[in-house]
């Protein structure tokens, strides 16, 4: 290979993509199970979404329309950077409109707009193992998953309630997929958890540094862990979005001055733009 030769479509070579697609197929077949895969080194740092990028690169075709969001917004720097990466290496069409996208790569959010069966949502995952902070050893957590030994997970929730009166996990809130595997939904706010349940779109999760891929097939049951008398609940705001007036969306807090002034606006910029009728800039 001569230097400077152009890269393959969507950066990764075809063998690598095949390997990743095999891992994805296995992940879809065993919902919520973490499939090890030979994660490649990517030109962006670990923690910047190397897992998501590899999954996207492997599912992307020439006709796809790609949307990339970070914190719900298309315009955050990392989202811009990843979108540019695929524009450059795959030349696919990109969009900021949720409804127009066939593949959506995301960090930390699920779009407010309901996704369809012809869409794929790709999550960037930092730590795929939901039991990791309770048990640091991979050998042990693997056994716990295999034997469905999930008591420890509820011990943590119990401790939250006994100490704070609430389950104090607000993001990366663990879920049980298809009544079997406990899964980390990536650091999305728990506000987004209910959207995963029976979602029409295929949900793929890529963790590059930890070399794991997992998936939730369309219309799969996703249950956020809780107690019967302390049911799972999502965040609520007293305010509506200051721009579009939405009362059903996840709101970002904006500090407007140094005298305590603040306002709340939609974290999902496309959703907000559509509602307020402004054109995407």
């Amino acid at each position: 290979m001569t230097r400077g030769q152009t890269y393959n479509f969507a950066y990764l070579d075809e063998q690598t993509k095949r390997m990743i697609r095999r891992a994805i197929l296995k992940a879809v077949a065993i919902p919520g199970y973490q499939v090890p895969f030979a994660s490649r080194e990517m030109p962006m740092p670990y923690g910047w979404g190397t897992g998501g990028v590899q999954v996207t690169a492997s599912v992307l075709g020439h006709d796809d329309v790609l949307k990339v969001i970070d914190q719900g917004a298309d315009d955050t720097t990392n989202a811009v950077s990843i979108r540019k990466f695929f524009q450059k290496t795959a030349g696919v069409e990109t969009t900021t409109e949720t409804a127009n996208a066939s593949v959506i790569q995301t960090r930390h959010r699920i779009p407010e707009e309901e996704l369809r069966a012809d869409q794929i949502l790709v999550y960037q995952v930092p730590i795929p193992e939901p039991l990791r902070f309770l048990e640091p050893r991979e050998t042990e957590t693997r056994t716990m998953h295999a034997l469905e030994e999930y008591g420890l997970m509820h011990v943590k929730l119990y401790e939250d309630i006994s100490r704070h009166g609430h389950i104090a996990t607000t993001y990366a809130y663990p879920v049980r997929v298809n009544a079997r595997y406990i899964m980390d939904p990536s650091p999305i706010p728990k506000f987004d958890n209910p959207k995963m349940h029976r979602m029409a779109a295929l949900q793929l999760f890529g963790a590059g540094r930890e070399k794991r891929i997992y998936a939730i097939p369309p219309y799969t049951q996703v249950h956020s862990l809780d107690f019967e008398d302390h049911p799972f609940e999502v965040q609520q705001w007293d305010q509506a979005c200051a721009i579009c007036g939405a009362e059903v969306s996840f709101l970002d807090e904006i500090i407007t001055d140094d005298a305590g002034g603040r306002m709340f606006v939609c974290s999902d910029t496309d959703f907000c733009n559509k509602r307020s009728g402004s054109t995407a800039a």
């Binding site: 999930y150 008591g151 509820h154 011990v155 119990y158 401790e159 006994s162 019967e228 008398d229 302390h230």
Partner: peptide, 20 residues
């Protein structure tokens, strides 16, 4: 982990899901 959770762990491990 608190005393209560220590006692409760085995219950949760076999499926108890009512905090009270």
């Amino acid at each position: 982990v608190s005393a209560g959770a220590n006692v409760g762990e085995r219950l949760m491990a076999v499926g108890a899901r009512h905090y009270g």
